[in-house]
Design a protein around this nucleic acid. Structure first.
Lengths: 221, 221
DNA sequence: AATTTTGATTATCGTTCGATAAATTCAGAG
DNA sequence: CTCTGAATTTATCGAACGATAATCAAAATT
């Protein structure tokens, strides 16, 4: 009876040799796969589907995560906060390069960080379920990126007088629209699943120029 | 035993007088409420929750809809296609008014149609589950709106030569970013649940000017 | 008032879900 | 080689889900 797998009988369903993994490795493996599968099916993905995708049994998940929700939290951490680069703010503020070039540099790196199937889809799934995570992320973006870009824009325009509240609001709104347009490229590709141009570099340059052309005042002689 | 509700016994749980509604009315009532509740909880909303929100019993839903999925289809119809205005294309092409004004007119009406909690959230829920609906909607948008705006832009720029494929692609990309920025206002408000400026009119005008400033070439003397 | 039709409820089925307990197998230490 | 602890599986529970059948009550019809 026991040890059926080692006997030569060919009808055994699968070799099915148990893979004992070190706890740490298994935990990371689970998170990795959860990122992929949650991105596809959302948090409605069942623990059985996840286990099946890992070729392990479903109760094993509960050895490493006390609940499905706690696993989801780990997925958040892996996807969003591990890809954030604090140096973005410094790049944008470094006036040794032209502002246009700084913007392109930042956006090239930023899009490389977030324009992935898992990032875009899980960000939306998270927001629809509970926006707390998105608010945290966007607060970070506002603080490290938006405020710097707005300051540099005013510097480029030789604006001496500090802008009033309404002016700041309008500038921030334009910036929101501009910045979100890159995230939205991911929405088009991985949510709507529409074809996208592949030359991202060119698109970034084009949008930066359209943005600056609309928001930069040429020096009036 | 029978007729317990009419006897004077005060311990009866609720008056619970059966509300007989005409079939047509009940069906519409169900769809209306389903729109609200699906927008909040997504399609994971259970038929029991929906029934509870309507103060009816759960099996009654199946008198009016053969399955939950068919009800979802009706919700799509109600939310998206009933709010589409075919006249948008005509407005945009009507050269008796300045292009800037046409754009503002269109966007004011368009945002009034789509900037609602249910529209934005259900559009995203739908896309994440199956993008077929979104593709249909966006194909409509592309055909009726994008192509007209692009044509008018070329007309404004006095572009005689027909643009090459790459030029069309770049223009369309800029337009995507511009147009999506209005939908994204709804995402900020009802998905991320961030505070939004209330003066939509001003925001539209500001964005239109930023867009045209970046994309319109001043006549070179 | 009796009868029919249709709207609405009660009861329930089969399935699937997240989670737990107990038994089993691997791998490293002695 | 044996022992032991950690990793994994088997078996299962209670709750919740979509859906159906049977029953009941309110209108509409006659």
């Amino acid at each position: 009876m026991s040890g059926a797998q080692r006997t030569g009988r060919g009808t055994v369903k699968s070799p099915q040799r148990r893979q004992h993994l070190a706890g740490q490795d298994r935990q990371e493996q689970i998170i990795d796969r959860a990122v992929e599968l949650f991105a596809q099916k959302g948090f409605a993905l069942t623990t059985r589907e996840l286990a099946s995708g890992l070729q392990i049994t479903q109760p094993l998940l509960y050895r490493y995560f006390p609940s499905k929700q706690m696993l989801i939290e780990k997925v958040y951490e892996r996807v969003f906060f591990s890809r954030w680069r604090p140096e973005w703010a410094q790049w944008l503020a470094d006036r040794r390069q032209p502002f246009r070039q700084r913007l392109i540099h930042y956006l090239t790196d930023y899009t490389q960080a977030i324009l992935h199937n898992e990032w875009v889809r899980i960000f939306l799934y998270a927001g629809l379920q509970d926006p707390a995570l998105n608010q945290r992320y966007l607060a970070m973006l506002h603080k490290d990126v938006f405020s710097v870009i707005n300051a540099e824009l005013r510097h480029e325009n030789h604006a001496d007088a500090p802008p009033d509240a309404r002016q700041i609001m309008l500038e921030t709104e334009i910036l929101w629209g501009f910045h979100a347009s890159f995230f939205y490229m991911g929405v088009r590709k991985w949510v709507y699943q529409l074809p996208m141009p592949d030359d991202l570099e060119a698109l970034i340059a084009e949008r930066v120029d359209a943005f600056l052309g609309g928001v930069l005042h040429p020096a009036r002689p």
